[in-house]
């Protein structure tokens, strides 16, 4: 399903939450809306779900206004897994009944969605007594069972403890591959977007700051602001790819004021500043860690350093 934001503006309390003159998503199977808190990600999702109407412009789902199409074409898994009283099965059953799915079809859909999301053993359990990870899986199962054309996921991994998050993150690609729906997921985590999505839309201050293949967007953010959010070390008009700075000489060298050395488990890293900007540089295996307070040379491959123009846009 193609989702088109045409001249969309949303304002609340005098603040512009979203400003999307023209944005189309859904060409890829899974699109991630990535951005910091307050960037307008959830607002965009709510517009697609028909839960809000834009102050200006239109959100079109395959050409039809979202507020009209959403009720049959959209499935939405809220950030917090919310259920009504009853078992997981009863909750899934109700969702399908509300969508007008015939009784004979419901059992089959529930069984399939439960299997895909790994909640088959939870179907008889009280939905209000599930753990965080179980509830989120049941939430996804309900969304998948609807078999809608557009599946919206609002931060599906937020609020989960480490092991539950890792387990769900590992299973999510298979879950999403099992649906025919176009998936749009909201996240503020760059790695989640890279792992799950085929298309990335970076939202900053309510505007689409970048759109494209996730790896490509991270490698070559179109603006310095996008680079900063994506974890690049932005040094004035230059930005260094995340993890590309290494202590020692190399193709592009920078003076680095060491503040401390941290053991990240897999390797040591020096934390400090380059031209006053906080930065982290990998200490090569076997190299002596620099002393805090000292100034050392750090470097990055030339290909890992991007240049930005005065207006903040990528130079080449």
């Amino acid at each position: 399903m193609e989702v088109r934001f045409a001249g969309v503006e949303v304002e609340k309390g005098g603040r512009r939450l979203l400003d999307l003159p023209e944005l189309t998503v859904g060409r890829a199977a899974v699109t991630a809306l990535l951005g910091p808190n307050g960037a307008g990600k959830t607002t965009a999702l709510r517009l697609m779900a028909g839960l809000e109407r834009p102050g200006r412009g239109q959100v079109l789902l395959d050409g039809e206004p979202a507020e009209r199409a959403a009720r049959r074409a959209v499935s939405y898994a809220f950030q917090r897994a919310v259920f009504l009283r009853g078992t997981v099965r009863e909750n899934l059953e109700l969702a399908l009944r509300l969508r007008g799915v015939p009784a004979a079809e419901r059992g089959r859909r529930i069984a399939r969605a439960a299997e895909v999301c790994g909640v088959g053993h939870l179907l008889g359990r009280d939905a209000l007594r599930l753990s965080g990870g179980e509830a989120q899986r049941a939430n996804l199962a309900r969304a998948l069972a609807l078999d809608a054309g557009l599946l919206l996921l609002d931060e599906p991994l937020s609020g989960l403890d480490g092991p539950s998050r890792s387990a769900l993150l590992a299973d999510l690609p298979a879950m999403l591959a099992a649906t025919r729906a176009t998936v749009v997921l909201v996240t503020h985590d760059r790695d989640e977007a890279l792992l799950l999505a085929r298309e990335l839309v970076l939202l900053l201050d309510g505007r689409a700051a970048a759109q494209g293949l996730p790896g490509e967007v991270v490698r070559r953010p179109p603006t310095a602001a996008a680079a900063a959010f994506l974890g690049h070390t932005v040094l004035g008009q230059e930005a260094v790819l995340p993890g590309a700075l290494t202590v020692g000489p190399g193709e592009r060298e920078f003076a680095f004021a060491v503040e401390r050395v941290v053991d990240l488990g897999t390797h040591l890293a020096a934390e400090g500043r380059v031209r006053g900007t906080p930065a982290r540089a990998v200490i090569p295996p076997g190299a002596p860690p620099p002393a805090p307070g000292s100034e050392v040379t750090v470097s990055a491959p030339a290909a890992a350093v991007l240049r930005y123009r005065d207006d903040g846009r990528l130079a080449e």
Binding site: A49, G50, L51, A70, R71, R72, V74, S75, Y76, F78, R80, V82, L84, L94, A95, L98, R99, G100, L146
Partner: peptide, 22 residues
């Protein structure tokens, strides 16, 4: 009640009367 519940029911396709009843 969870504040998201009315919107969840709306997204699932329940009309205003059905939502109120649920």
């Amino acid at each position: 009640l969870p504040p998201e519940l009315p919107e969840l029911l709306q997204v699932l396709g329940a009309g205003p009367v059905r939502r109120l009843w649920l």
